[in-house]
Structure formats: structure tokens, C-alpha cells
């Protein structure tokens, strides 16, 4: 595992005492994918925004041993790229407009991109497969295409650290995998990737380490196979899970279940008289054995 790039020491931030993160400590290493999971409102986005220096938390964050606060915004932007969960920009911007904005911290001229800047912009679009869309408006793209454009923007920034918030939400399986593969390949080239993920299986499949947040606190951090256990997930997410192990990669595969005891009071009342939540079995395969790719209906 690579050297430590970012060190987070006892960081807390909250908005009027609500939500946020509390006393989080963490190390981010060179060339790793760090998945961040946790329920809604557990502080995942807040943590990313603190790391991006968009919030000024209590505690200390060091980048290469230097305090984050002491680094000029433009210098930080050459090192670190943050992709918020939603695109909030103008829908009428073209793909080229968005990706070339990634060169902003590197630009020497006041107005125009240099030839080198432009080459990097085109290369980033090619890597993400969106160079054919250069002149299209962002508002006309599918969510998968738009997400790739935003990732191309981050690539054009040539950062050593990428912070990305829910990169795969609203995407189809193919696009989810493509985005995760890009992040993993970037990590192989030495970039540290911190990705907030909602899909536990994507987090398990693509993270070198996973950080688990609950109510703003870091409750676990480690390899997927070490920390993704039934009791932790029940405690953090309030769900029962069945955990299988990928026979080839050894990574946990998580099947979420629901237990009657975990339901809210209103739902329990609604289920009045029902002792157990009925499980939906597929009767053609009563044993639940794995299918071998034969789809006979």
C-alpha cells in the first residue's frame, strides 16, 4: 500500500449542531480506492467537502504533511479534484466547456487555453469516451454520459486525489461499472480515490478499503472482507443481510434483507398479526442454488 497522502485528525463539522461529522480520523494512501459508505445523513458528503477544503472544520487535515488551510485554493485545485453528487451547472454549457474548465487551476494565460491545455482536454474526453460529444449541450445528455463528462473534467484537472460523491447513482449497470473501472484504473496510476457509494456491492467490489460512517462518526475502516459483517451492517444501516463470498475475488457479496423487528412502528402496525415478514422465494429454485446462466423462461 502506498504512502499516506492525506491525514485527517479528529475532524468535526456540523451545521447548527445537526448532522455533519464528529471526530473523524483517517488516512488516505497513494493509489488506493477508499469507499465511503453509511446511511443517508451520516456525514459522507460533509467529509468530502471538508477534504476539498470547501468547509472549515475543527480538527486538522494534512495534505503531504501540510495543513490544508495553508494551501492556496489554486494550488490545491492542481492536486485535488472534487465532483459533487449532482451537476448544478448551466444545462446549456457544451461538453467541451465543462471539460476545459478542469484546466482552470493550471492555466497561465488569462483568457485562452494553451495548446497543451487543449490536448489534455481532448485526451480526457477520449479516455471517458465523450470526445464525440464535445459540441453537445450537457443538458441534452443521458445521466451516464453526463457523469462521464464530469469525470473527464476531473481528469483534465490532472489531480493526485479525486473525491467523488455518489458517482454511480441513477446509472445503469454498464455505466456504473464503467465509472468504477475508470476510478480503479486511476488508482492504479497512483491517484488516490475517495468515493462515496450507496451500493454496498459496488463498494465491496471496487474499494481497497472501506470507511463506514454512522451519525457522523467513523465506526469502521478496513478491507471489505474484514469489515463488511452482518452485525456491523445491521448496526449501521438497520438491515439484516446475508453475506456470500465471491469465490474468485474473495470479496463479500451483500444481500440485504429486512427483519420485522427493524421496521418502524407504523409499518409494524400495518403488518398487525403477521409474525414474520414473508420471504419471496422463487419456487423454481427452492434450494436457492446459484443459476448457471441457464435462463429457461
Amino acid at each position: 500500500m502506498g504512502r499516506v497522502v492525506v491525514r485527517v485528525e479528529g475532524v468535526s463539522w456540523s451545521y447548527d449542531g445537526v448532522g455533519g461529522i464528529r471526530d473523524v480520523s483517517l488516512e488516505i494512501r497513494e493509489g488506493e480506492v477508499l469507499g465511503v459508505i453509511g446511511p443517508n445523513g451520516s456525514g459522507k458528503t460533509t467529509l468530502l467537502r471538508c477534504l476539498a477544503n470547501l468547509l472549515k472544520p475543527h480538527g486538522a487535515i494534512y495534505l503531504d504533511g501540510r495543513s490544508l488551510e495553508g494551501i492556496r485554493p489554486r494550488e490545491l485545485a492542481k492536486t485535488l479534484s472534487y465532483i459533487p453528487s449532482e451537476y448544478e451547472g448551466q444545462p446549456s454549457l457544451t461538453v467541451y466547456d465543462v471539460v476545459s474548465a478542469g484546466r482552470t487551476p493550471h492555466m497561465r494565460g488569462l483568457w485562452w487555453e494553451s495548446r497543451e491545455d487543449e490536448e489534455i482536454v481532448w485526451e480526457s474526453m477520449r479516455v471517458m469516451g465523450v470526445d464525440g460529444l464535445a459540441g453537445r449541450r450537457v443538458g441534452e445528455l443521458s445521466s451516464g454520459e453526463r457523469q462521464k463528462v464530469r469525470l473527464a473534467r476531473a481528469l483534465a484537472q490532472r489531480p493526485r486525489i479525486i473525491l467523488v460523491d455518489e458517482p454511480t447513482s441513477h446509472l445503469d449497470p454498464r455505466n456504473q461499472i464503467e465509472i468504477m473501472e475508470v476510478l480503479r484504473l486511476m488508482a492504479l496510476r497512483g491517484v488516490s480515490v475517495v468515493a462515496v457509494l450507496h451500493d454496498l456491492n459496488l463498494a465491496s467490489a471496487y474499494s481497497d478499503r472501506i470507511l463506514v460512517l454512522k451519525d457522523g462518526r467513523a465506526v469502521a475502516c478496513g478491507k471489505p472482507s474484514e469489515i463488511l459483517g452482518e452485525s456491523l451492517l445491521r448496526d449501521v444501516f438497520g438491515i439484516d443481510v446475508r453475506i456470500l463470498v465471491d469465490p474468485e475475488l474473495g470479496r463479500p457479496i451483500i444481500i440485504p434483507l429486512m427483519d420485522k423487528e427493524l421496521l418502524g412502528a407504523g409499518l409494524k402496525e400495518y403488518l398487525d398479526g403477521v409474525k414474520e415478514l414473508p420471504r419471496l422465494k422463487d419456487t423454481a429454485h427452492p434450494g436457492g442454488t446459484a443459476r448457471q446462466g441457464k435462463d429457461n423462461r
Partner: peptide, 11 residues
């Protein structure tokens, strides 16, 4: 035009 957060993180 990219949004405030993205502009800020671009320095």
C-alpha cells in the same frame, strides 16, 4: 456556470 462548488474546487 459549472456551479459554485465546482468553481470553488477549481480554485
Amino acid at each position: 456556470l459549472l456551479g459554485d462548488e465546482e468553481a470553488r474546487q477549481l480554485g
